[in-house]
């Protein structure tokens, strides 16, 4: 549905989006994840024909965003990050205006408005002036607007930003439901959101795609060795020795903690030590109170990827610099401190 091909956008000498390529399949919910200023909004603005790309191409539903912009815009519903609305209009007036602008057939306009009001939970404020609404309601008015012409593709820029926890949950639920009928591209810097909603994730950092996978694959790929934490009763030194002997186990840490023993068992990448641990305990008749595999969260992965990138970039910078001056070294140290 969306195809982005070597897309680059520069503002002056600042590169906001740097040669990115990705695809969104029909019916997919793709999450764009990245720190602030990574190029998410710029990418979305290019896809919605608001700003042109410096180079590269993008097609939405088979139409080029630059050459066939009107047709592209008919297929998408876009919710900008700041949700700019006409604050002087009433909710239903605004939706009527948007529906007419988006060429919803005359007969369908009012049923569509009713439907969208209901879907987004804003029926009770439909006669209110938008300027008097809270951020959460405005967000939902914006969302209702993106749905008004029943577009194939939804592009949502940080749809849950600035909402309270209940509203966030509602909006996420809504997006999930919408995902059954629409193709969705959404951006966020909130990680659990991606895990909850998206079928696939793109991690963008400094205008470049650094990862593109399903949330679970990302976790699997980036997890070093699996870590298992244990809580057990029994002679701690003996247990520790036995655990070390299990094939694939690299390291065992922890020990006696008062009544119980707590261990952290790290094993080789891709190796699951839990079965062997259980058998060892069973054989020796020790009591196993708890066994849990620690999974690296997307949060940690994100942090790892983005900081790795920064470190590499820094190392590259250093290696290119002529060896020497005290000044350079000092600025290097300062740079590291800042991070």
């Amino acid at each position: 549905m969306i195809k982005v091909d070597h897309l680059t956008k520069r503002y002056g000498d600042k590169t906001a989006v740097d040669d990115i390529s990705f695809e969104v399949q029909e019916g997919e919910i793709l999450g764009m994840l990245g720190p602030n200023g990574a190029g998410k909004t710029t990418t979305m603005r290019i896809l919605t024909c608001f700003t042109p790309a410096t180079s590269g191409s993008a097609t939405v539903a088979g139409c080029d965003v630059f050459a066939d912009s009107l047709r592209v815009r008919r297929q998408i519903g876009y919710l900008p990050e700041s949700v700019p609305l006409y604050l002087d209009m009433r909710v239903n007036e605004y939706l009527l205006f948007r529906a007419q602008l988006k060429r919803v057939p005359r007969k369908e306009i009012y049923p569509r408005i009713e439907q969208c009001l209901e879907k987004c939970g804003i029926v009770e404020v439909k006669n209110q002036i938008i300027g008097t609404l809270s951020k959460g309601y405005r967000q939902r008015v914006g969302l209702a607007d993106t749905l008004i012409h029943d577009p194939k593709i939804l592009i949502l820029d940080e749809p849950t930003i600035g909402l309270d926890p209940n509203q966030i949950r509602q909006v996420r639920q809504l997006i999930k439901e919408l995902g059954q009928r629409h193709t969705i591209l959404l951006s966020t810097h909130i990680l659990p959101e991606v895990e909850m909603i998206c079928g696939r994730v793109i991690i963008i950092n400094r205008g470049k795609i650094v990862a593109n996978d399903t949330p679970s694959n990302l976790v699997a790929r980036l997890r070093g060795g699996a870590t298992v934490s244990l809580e057990a009763k029994g002679p701690s030194e003996v247990i520790e020795r036995a655990l070390r002997e299990i094939p694939g186990v690299i390291r065992v840490t922890g020990g006696n903690k008062g009544q119980v023993n707590q261990f952290l068992v790290e094993s080789d990448k891709g190796k699951d030590a839990r079965e062997d641990i259980f058998k060892t305990f069973a054989r020796n008749d020790w009591i196993l109170l708890e066994m849990k595999r620690d999974v690296m969260t997307l949060e940690e992965i994100f942090h790892q990827i983005t900081t790795q990138e920064a470190e590499e970039a820094y190392r590259e910078e250093v290696s290119q610099r002529p060896a020497g001056g005290v000044k350079e070294r000092l600025s290097g140290i300062l740079g590291r401190l800042k991070r």
Partner: peptide
């Protein structure tokens, strides 16, 4: 100024 131009121009209007 208010950014509504983004909503306006991403709708199918010339």
């Amino acid at each position: 100024r208010s950014g509504t131009i983004e909503m306006l121009m991403t709708a199918p209007v010339t």
